[in-house]
Amino acid sequence: MAEKHAITVTVNGRLYRAEVEPRRTLADFLREDLNLVGTHLGCEHGVCGNCTVLVDGKSTRSCLMFAVQADGREVLTVEGLAPNGDLHPLQRAFWEHHALQCGFCTPAMLLTAYEYLTTRPDAGTDEEIREAISGVLCRCTGYQNIVTAIRAAAKQMAPSP
């Protein structure tokens, strides 16, 4: 077995120190070592995007990054989207617009949409929203309500005039 590496990672604002085998994926580190199981593994080969988290603010397939690579970086998972059991406007919009069925892709969709709305606060066109979420596969919804929810969340998040 390869030598373990000491890492320091900030996850959802909290600093974690750990020793990891180099081959341990960031997804497994979050799920198994930190028990942040809201990040879901759908394919482990970088297609389904269900394991998407934000690393230094960038949407990232956590099955395609090793935990050791996250050393010194900041990770945001679905558990960190809203504090104290509140709902982030995106979470609320997903609820109100029935943008989830089984919920398995939902954390990845939320984080992908979160990154998208930071670069496109007005949510852009439907086509742009669809392009933005095209890296996360959803098998339940047919995507339509997800697009609707992201647009609705953008309105909620816009600073009042």
Partner: peptide
């Protein structure tokens, strides 16, 4: 929905 939106779905692998 509320559990799934928060990543608290408690699926089998969790």
């Amino acid at each position: 929905d509320l559990r799934f939106l928060r990543g608290k779905g408690r699926y089998i692998d969790d």
